[in-house]
Nucleic acid binder design. Structure first.
Length: 314
DNA sequence: TCACGAATAT
DNA sequence: CATATTCGTG
């Protein structure tokens, strides 16, 4: 459950700390049941033949924590490569799957940690932000970051959803990589990542406009380029800021979480939200095929690689 | 110099 | 396919 939180803030760049957010509403330390406390009375336990190993010592607890941490940190580093065989990877990967399937929606959009390029984030406007959190880089060890190649980003349904939401709320006009990236506020996400995804998105988007109506199929396919009616429906005007940061806690016009997407494994049925601001009668979310094998679907599941950890979200 | 985005490359 | 990278352009 919430283990993914922010241990990975290697450098939370644009984001403001999520930690605060995560802390809000959480029980106080003393409100929590001590981890080393027995949850089941021994009599009861024995009655149900529950493991006799229930009482844990603080040491045990700590050890467990350590493990958790390590697994969360596993990425960084090329070591990943070396220790690759790792069960770590597999481990968390599988877990994410389970969790994802269930229903958690936003919560974790994220991505891994290391990050090569993002050192330069502060640009126009921003004065504040950055710095403070930037330096973190927990494991300064291996040079890390820059120079390192990060694993390919996998656009999980969550990420994609975020993406769609943001794009939808910026007009066609404001939907450019940098801005999108900023609004998504996902740790580790780079502009390139977004640009690439956006390119594909636009592609699908276009491919759907010209209505499939193969009407006069054969010839003349390119004839109807028209469809030019673009207009951004939503006045994207506000929140744009366009430049550094704007952390974002305040804006986000859209509701960040409306969970429950009906579309999960449906074949060609539902579509994800479509961009409200995209050309006239926008195409809907694209998704591809149906087959749950191992494909990813723009509308739903993907069983991908590492599923990042999370942070983000206002 | 930087960011876009189309074209290419993995 | 899905992503990443390159590269001409504004």
């Amino acid at each position: 459950m919430g283990e993914e939180v922010s241990l990975t803030d290697y450098e939370s760049s644009g984001g403001n700390d999520d930690r605060l957010l995560w802390e809000v509403g959480l029980p106080d330390v003393d409100d929590l049941t001590p981890l080393n406390m027995q949850l089941i009375p021994s009599e009861l336990a024995s009655a149900f033949r529950i493991s006799p190993e229930m009482s844990k010592t603080m040491t045990d607890v700590n050890r467990a924590s350590q493990n958790t941490f390590s697994s969360l940190q596993r990425w960084h580093s090329q070591d990943m490569a070396s220790m690759n065989n790792s069960n770590f990877k597999t481990f968390s990967y599988e877990r994410s799957r389970e969790e994802t399937v269930t229903e958690r929606d936003e919560t974790d959009l994220i991505r891994e940690g290391s990050d090569p390029r993002k050192l330069r984030r502060v640009e126009s406007g921003g004065t504040e932000e950055a710095d403070s959190s930037l330096c973190n880089e927990n494991f300064a060890d291996d040079s890390s970051a820059k120079t390192l190649k990060r694993p390919r980003l996998v656009w999980t349904p969550q990420l994609h959803k975020r993406f769609i939401e943001v794009v939808a709320h910026l007009g066609i006009k404001g939907a450019v990589p940098k801005t999108i990236m900023q609004l998504m506020n996902v740790e580790g996400l780079t502009r390139e990542n977004v640009a690439s995804h956006l390119q594909k998105y636009r592609l699908y988007t276009k491919r759907m406009q010209p209505n499939e109506g193969p009407s006069s199929s054969d010839h003349l396919l390119t004839s109807t380029p028209a469809t030019e009616s673009m207009r951004e429906s939503s006045e994207s005007g506000h929140l744009r800021n366009t430049n550094g940061h704007m952390a974002m806690p305040t804006l986000m016009p859209y509701q960040p979480q409306m969970v429950a997407m009906p579309m999960m494994g449906m074949p060609n049925g539902g579509h994800v939200g479509m961009p409200v601001g995209y050309g006239g009668g926008p195409p809907l979310g694209f998704h591809h095929h149906y087959n749950m094998v191992q494909q990813r679907d723009w509308s739903g599941n993907n069983f991908g690689y590492y599923h990042p950890v999370a942070s983000n979200d206002k």
